[in-house]
């Protein structure tokens, strides 16, 4: 497709997302479709300063005692325990799986995490290790983390990880296409990956650290949701900044707008850079204030993290015992 046509098509598609559900197709000859309704989800724009101010304000919410313990346990249940290193081995992943099933061997009341997130090569091993545990296997795919390969290869990769047993697929969007305005390329690719996922849940990584503006984050979130994402996810963890509170708030607002307008329920996964229990609780506050308790479940919110788990476990034990803890008493994997 010629560049101009493609851009026109992408513009129409993106804009018509706002109106498609209600607008009739124009009936006059030679006419074309225009977004005419002021409806959600508006592509809209985001004011960076006010967004950050709101996130900062929510970060000051104070929760104590019983609520805190419940929040920490929820954080564990929402965790996608992640290892995404070139040096990953079946042994390393196996250890991680054990940790995922029983995060704190000393305290068996601590629940399992939601999922283990690995590279495609390690899916089969993880699947076997986690069988029957309820802990899901998530695989990154689509030429993670850069996404710089052909759509055909990406789709093939997704088919393969699904065959290998991945319950969830974490794809990356084509940022090159997005940043050069080729939104239809991004959209079509997500559609094809979604199709390839079959029953597997699709998380779409925007890599917000490369998008440059909150306007882009909002636009990419809407694009991903329109194309069928089950989750939108901030980051690969390979680019700094990864997840931040304001970027998460921005995406949650897009999730809320999509739900308001279409009834479609989409999950959210901040990933990367969340290392402390305190941060995790801040994210949960933002989630609560933006989407309410209905979204406060591992079905709809995940933390992508590796080192976060142990800090949460330490805080859980501290809440239960009243004694400050040391990492020496928690297994590193």
């Amino acid at each position: 497709m010629a560049r101009e046509q493609e851009m026109a098509a992408s513009a129409t598609r993106l804009d018509s997302m706002a109106a498609a559900s209600t607008l009739p197709t124009p009936s006059f000859p030679g006419g074309f479709e225009l977004p005419l309704a002021f409806r959600l989800p508006r592509i809209g724009s985001v004011d960076a300063v006010a967004l950050e101010a709101r996130a900062a304000e929510l970060a000051k919410r104070s929760i104590k005692k019983d609520s805190k313990l419940a929040a920490l346990e929820l954080a564990v249940r929402m965790m996608d325990l992640t290892t995404l290193e070139g040096a990953d081995t079946p042994g390393k992943v196996s250890a991680l799986c054990s940790k995922a099933i029983r995060p704190d061997p000393v305290d068996r009341t601590v629940p399992s995490v939601a999922a283990v997130c690995v590279y495609p090569n390690l899916v089969a091993g993880a699947k076997a290790r986690l069988a029957g545990s309820g802990v899901k296997v998530a695989s990154v795919a689509t030429a993670f983390p850069s996404g710089q390969t052909s759509t055909a290869l990406k789709v093939a990769e997704v088919r393969e990880v699904v065959v290998l047993g991945a319950d969830e697929v974490d794809m990356v969007i084509d940022r090159g296409a997005f940043l050069s305005g080729r939104y239809s390329k991004v959209y079509d690719e997500i559609c094809q990956v979604k199709e390839a996922c079959g029953e597997a849940h699709l998380k779409v990584i925007l890599e917000t650290g490369e998008l440059g503006t909150y306007d882009n984050v909002r636009r990419a979130s809407l694009l991903a949701m329109a194309a069928g994402a089950d989750f939108v996810k901030t980051s690969t963890g390979k680019v700094s900044p990864a997840a931040t509170l304001p970027v998460t708030l921005c995406m949650l607002e897009a999730v809320r707008d999509v739900h308001d307008e279409t009834g479609r329920v989409v999950g959210m996964k901040p990933a990367g850079g969340i290392r402390t229990a305190k941060q995790a609780i801040q994210y949960l506050c933002v989630l609560h204030e933006t989407l309410g308790t209905q979204w406060m479940t591992p079905d709809l919110f995940r933390f992508g993290a590796s080192s976060l788990l142990n800090d949460v476990l330490m805080q859980i034990r501290k809440q239960k015992t009243g004694v400050y803890q040391s990492l020496d008493y928690f297994t590193s994997d």
Binding site: D47, A48, V49, A50, E52, G212, T213, Y214
Partner: peptide, 11 residues
């Protein structure tokens, strides 16, 4: 009259 105008500085 002195009029003061505020606007956020953000990307």
């Amino acid at each position: 009259e002195m009029k003061t105008v505020w606007h956020p500085v953000g990307q």
